[in-house]
């Protein structure tokens, strides 16, 4: 992990009389060292030079500003104002960043964060060899609700379903709104069997909801598993879950389908097969 003090910040250096201005890239560490030297000279009375340095937000963090701002003997004429602005900017940036990753209707993660997180989880699977499961969920008959009761009702339902997704997933899972009425659930370190249970639970909750529209909204769910044996790329993994979901829809809606490559991948020749797994698991206590 890089030390905070080794981070580069942009420094604008102004001369006394405001006649010259220089921009340079420096590390926080070097800046502090320079400050220390100058302040020593000032204390010893060997120089009358006062240095004003403006740290621009380019690359600096609130931590940097706190450290630099606390340095004595340095006049920071314009800085106070600027530091305040930088802090506000940081806050705003953080807010914007979170907004750009969260779906504002449901409060779940959005598609952008979904792809970022999926990459991480797939890499983790390669390393830990815990399989990662992906669930794609499509709301059946959602269009009917929208058309009959209006988009506000539709949005209300999406919001409610977002809450259900959030409440019924574990803290390590990542529920996302993938698009319109499509949702995704990334389940790290989860087998297809466990994912099936979660899928069933979600399906049942929606079936028990009081609903205005007829036919009522139900869930078509597709599940794909990524193991360290999987030949899937990220796109292929999502596509596999997507295809399974379309099969569920095509098969009459309100059902769960599993990616049909699953068995092939999981129990292929070199993979540990059922008998071996049984022997590995049952004989070992």
């Amino acid at each position: 992990m890089g030390s905070a003090r080794n981070r580069h910040v942009t420094v604008t250096r102004k001369s006394h009389n405001d006649l010259t201005r220089r921009n340079e890239r420096k590390t926080v560490h070097d800046l502090l060292k320079e400050y220390e030297e100058t302040s020593r000279f000032i204390t010893e009375g060997t120089t009358k030079k006062q240095v004003s340095i403006i740290v621009l937000c380019n690359g600096s963090t609130p931590f940097d500003e706190e450290v630099l701002g606390a340095t004595p003997h340095i006049t920071m004429r314009m800085e106070d104002d600027l530091l305040q602005k930088i802090k506000e900017l940081h806050k705003e940036n953080a807010k914007l960043r979170s907004l750009s990753l969260i779906d504002n209707l449901t409060g779940l993660s959005n598609k952008r964060f979904f792809w970022m997180q999926l990459a991480t989880e797939m890499a983790r699977t390669k390393r830990t060899r815990d399989s990662c499961t992906l669930m794609m969920i499509d709301l059946d008959n959602f269009k009917c609700l929208n058309d009959t009761f209006g988009h506000l009702e539709g949005d209300k339902f999406l919001e409610e379903f977002g809450r259900i997704m959030h409440n019924s997933s574990r803290s390590t899972d990542l529920p996302c709104r993938y698009g319109g009425d499509e949702f995704a659930l990334i389940m790290p370190a989860t087998s297809v069997t466990d994912a099936l249970k979660t899928g069933e639970r979600l399906k049942n909750i929606v079936a028990d909801m009081p609903q205005k529209s007829n036919p009522p909204i139900s869930l078509s769910i597709g599940i794909a598993e990524y193991t360290s044996f999987s030949p899937y790329s990220m796109n292929e993994f999502v596509r596999a879950a997507d295809m399974a979901m379309y099969e569920a829809k095509g098969g009459g809606k309100n059902q769960i389908h599993i990616d049909h490559n699953w068995k092939k991948i999981t129990f292929e020749d070199n993979e540990v097969n059922r008998d071996e797994k049984d022997a590995l698991f049952t004989d070992y206590q």
């Binding site: 060899r129 815990d130 993979e271 540990v272 590995l280 070992y284």
Partner: peptide, 14 residues
């Protein structure tokens, strides 16, 4: 750990 044993066996087998 069972996962480690299973994975080691999977590797040996492959």
């Amino acid at each position: 750990d069972l996962t480690s044993i299973t994975d080691a066996y999977a590797m040996i087998k492959t």
